[in-house]
Write a protein that binds this DNA or RNA. Structure first.
Lengths: 345, 345
DNA sequence: CTGTTAGCGCATTCAC
DNA sequence: GTGAATGCGCTAACAG
């Protein structure tokens, strides 16, 4: 592999001159610039990124850690879309992504710490959003530039999040407008901020409609179809009546559809259902599922953008600044009792 | 940030001694080892990975590139599972993953080349598996250690793949055993090796059953539910009759389910359906979908394992060696005409 | 405009 | 057993 010295020798200049040509310095004559470029081409020279990183103390690399739990919480396509968004923006800024998927939060914390301490990355993006998030604590303690995808319930951080409260409020309001009055809410685990937010939006809509928030219609469970189904069964058996379900994840909505089928309830006539995430494959349920569309790609892209800007100008890394991305309610048949029109997907 | 010099000064030894302690050299007295360790703890020293990479010409980093096309081809959960598997193995070997998701093959080729030439990575894993794959050509030309997830139809490479031919043969055979005789096959784009392999398995099973392979029952289209649905409609309108569908992707199977619904055909009585990938969310279709389960996690884990072993011992990087992972047919109701029992998922 | 010098943080000779 | 010297490939002063 050719080094800067080889190029310098071939072009008959010093290594620093070559370095300047690479950097695009303007105080180099066109003649030597041209000579150097020709030499570079001849030996197929490409600067060694590692050597560069060492001397500049900048790696042009961003770390992204994730622990399995969060991966499951958000449904799968969410995760890959976020990555796509991050990668696209990183590409534009000529940066790379160092990825690590851990089994649990402890592992993630460890890995995160390692990437930072070993100076492998210039900054971090994390996607965990637990109520008590140790990864965030570490990041703050290490004074690492970082952006959170989601929201911190503890220390103020720079974050980008979809507007879960508003999305949930709108979804609930939509159900109310369709004439449903007894809306059950299936919440994900309460130690995830996202669960709290969606719950809050649900309550907000009820309060605004001057309807009581009834604890018996709210159930918390793990993200899975089975859990969603079981939760509704339990409510039913407990004698709680409901005419609609706000599912804080499409998996729950799937469970709700099965519940309706199981009980012989017609959707949307006897049971309205709204999901969260608008998982692409779910457009094809019977009936098609109304769901809140999350801008996953944009979430990743925006987080990366914020971080890279912050890396260039540390002033911009204002902790406490929370960027909210709008979420859109994709109305389909599962919640359309009034016979209104279905939006095109 | 503390450097090796700081530690040396504090411990009253030379930097090289500290370096030896880190490396675990045995020709260092226990006494100084202890002193050095204490100093390291005191200043919270962690070796700088970049400096280390420079001097050892080893980054302990593996690149993984992917272009959007392949991402879509394989369904989404596949992609994240592969990443999980790769990450888990990398973790065990104390290596990291540099990830890049490109828009198209040209971009991917460029990025791949960049990672290698800039010496950011020790090796590459790629997941593209086009019939004519330029990324593979680049990798070979650059003499980079690499492993392919999938299969190369051109130059021999070290690869790990699920046994698509066999899986497809078994799926087809299963349909035959259920008494279906006119099996339609929905193929993905023919420029993907995976499509060719699945088509081959389908034909193999027919030939083994001494049944004719009829071109009119084979259709090639893009991966989407809509395309699958449309393909079947076209066949139907063309007067081609079929009593079962082998869908080379679960999305196609979804389209087939809709087709059955649309036509008023009962599944599995009047139309048997088998999908590919066993997408988790798809366990909940009506009726539950029979599908070929791909070991995505294992694919990623194995690819990483092969690469890292190859990095340690280049002899092991034998191009032409193709590791095949078994795929399992998850039989559910959509293909059970005989009233046989459904496997537990 | 360009060359010389020094150093990023570490590992690895070669001495003793 | 340990230290001093050297260099990985590059950039950034400082000269001139």
């Amino acid at each position: 592999m050719a080094t800067i010295k080889d190029v310098a020798k071939l072009a008959g200049v010093s290594p620093s001159t070559v370095s300047r040509v690479i950097a695009g310095s303007d105080r180099i004559s066109e003649r030597t610039k041209e000579r150097v470029r020709r030499a570079m081409n001849e030996v197929n020279y490409v600067p060694n990124a590692i050597a560069r990183s060492l001397v500049r103390s900048r790696t042009r690399t961003v770390g992204f850690t994730l622990s399995r739990r969060a991966d499951q919480a958000f449904s799968n396509p969410f995760f890959s879309e976020v990555l796509r968004g991050m990668s696209a923006t990183a590409q534009r800024w000529d940066h790379d992504i160092l990825l690590s998927i851990s089994l649990d939060e402890q592992d993630e914390k460890k890995k995160c710490l390692q990437l930072i301490r070993e100076r492998r990355v210039d900054g971090m993006i994390i996607s965990t959003s637990r109520v008590q998030d140790e990864v965030i604590d570490v990041l703050i303690r290490e004074k690492t530039p970082f952006v959170v995808i989601g929201r911190s319930a503890g220390a103020p951080v720079l974050s980008v999040n979809n507007d879960n409260v508003e999305a949930s409020r709108r979804a609930t309001k939509h159900l109310l407008e369709q004439g449903y009055r007894k809306i059950a809410f299936i919440s994900g685990p309460r130690d995830l901020v996202v669960s709290l937010d969606r719950g809050q939006g649900y309550e907000k809509a009820l309060v605004e409609a001057e309807l009581p928030v009834e604890a018996k219609r709210i159930v918390e469970t793990d993200f899975s179809e089975e859990a969603g189904f079981a939760a509704l069964c339990r409510m039913w058996e407990a004698g709680v009546d409901f005419d609609a379900v706000l599912a804080s994840d499409d998996l729950f909505a799937l469970g709700a559809l099965r519940f309706a089928d199981h009980m012989g309830l017609r959707v949307p006539e006897e049971l309205g259902i709204v999901g969260f995430n608008d998982t692409p494959m779910m457009t094809h349920t019977h009936p098609p599922l109304t769901s809140v569309r999350i801008l996953s790609y944009e979430l990743g892209a925006e987080a990366m953008e914020l971080l890279l800007q912050g890396l260039e100008n540390r002033e911009k890394l204002r902790p406490g600044k929370e960027i909210l991305l709008p979420a859109e309610l994709k109305v389909r048949q599962s919640s359309l009792r009034q016979g209104g029109k279905t939006e095109k997907q």
